[in-house]
């Protein structure tokens, strides 16, 4: 029979082993995200149409800092209507209270992917100070992530139609391309042939004309010309008010006889 002291020593060691394992299990559980330290959480419901690989336990980040995790994913039995958009997926997330002041009504809830291992998480963009703070139990609409599969299938559609078009109009396209080729060949010949001198001359004249134009326009820019132009503008503006009756009246009443036309 173990003496009492020996028995107590054994009890102590068995207890110590047991407690060590309990502590290790708590640490493991915490590291694995199965249990968290007891604290107040902000419970927010986010509606999506497409979750993009988010799972229960996926992290929630605000400005890139982990502040919580997804605690529940459920399908709504009757789709909710938000801004005429029907949504059927409700993700419940627990967000730490320390992030509560910046999670506001105008915050956006994106689904993102991090790192080469492709961890999916929910990124909350900080809200503006003008918008009210979200309280626990609030329901918001999340930003659906782009659906790579849909993009791909649309891309396939476009490519399919192009292929169909090419198949259907193969003859026409061949003729069209043949014509184009001929045209380019002719143009090439034209440039290489005797006409080349003429074209060179033409380009030279064009160059001279644009040079002259440039000189004229630069002359127009000096202060005197601008003043002259302004006066003409004023004159024309005033002359605009002189319509036919006024002119007739002026000519008739003042007894001026003139051969105008």
């Amino acid at each position: 029979m173990p003496t009492n002291a020996k028995g107590l020593q054994r009890e102590f060691w068995v207890g110590a082993l047991f407690m060590t394992v309990v502590v290790l299990l708590v640490i493991f559980g915490w590291l694995m995200g199965a249990i968290g330290p007891i604290q107040n959480h902000l419970k927010i419901f986010v509606l999506y149409n497409f979750a993009g690989g988010i799972e229960v336990g996926s992290p929630v980040r605000v400005s890139g800092v982990k502040v919580g995790k997804v605690s529940k994913i459920e399908f709504l039995s009757s789709a909710a209507e938000i801004n005429k958009d029907s949504v059927s997926l409700k993700i419940t997330m627990d967000v730490s209270m320390k992030a509560a002041p910046i999670v506001r009504e105008d915050s956006k809830f994106y689904i993102n992917m991090a790192g080469i291992i492709g961890e999916k998480y929910i990124e909350i963009s900080p809200g503006t100070s003008a918008a009210p703070i979200l309280h626990t139990g609030a329901t918001v609409r999340g930003v659906d992530p782009p659906r790579i599969d849909q993009l791909l299938s649309q891309g396939y559609g476009v490519f399919g139609r192009i292929t169909d078009f090419i198949d259907e109009n193969e003859k026409t396209l061949t003729e069209f391309l043949g014509g184009m080729k001929e045209l380019i060949g002719d143009a090439n010949k034209l440039l290489k042939g005797r006409e080349r001198q003429k074209i060179a001359g033409l380009i030279e004249n064009l160059h001279a004309v644009t040079g002259d134009l440039h000189e004229i326009s630069s002359r127009l820019k000096n202060p005197e010309t601008i003043k002259f132009y302004d006066e003409i503008y004023e004159l024309v503006h005033r002359a605009h008010a002189i319509d036919k009756p006024t002119l007739q009246k002026f000519l008739q009443e003042d007894g001026i006889r003139a051969r105008v036309f």
């Binding site: 299990l25 559980g29 694995m32 995200g33 961890e119």
Partner: peptide, 14 residues
């Protein structure tokens, strides 16, 4: 190390 480990090792594994 721990980030990578506990991204894959989840509570059901334990």
């Amino acid at each position: 190390y721990f980030n990578t480990v506990f991204f894959f090792v989840k509570f059901p594994d334990l």
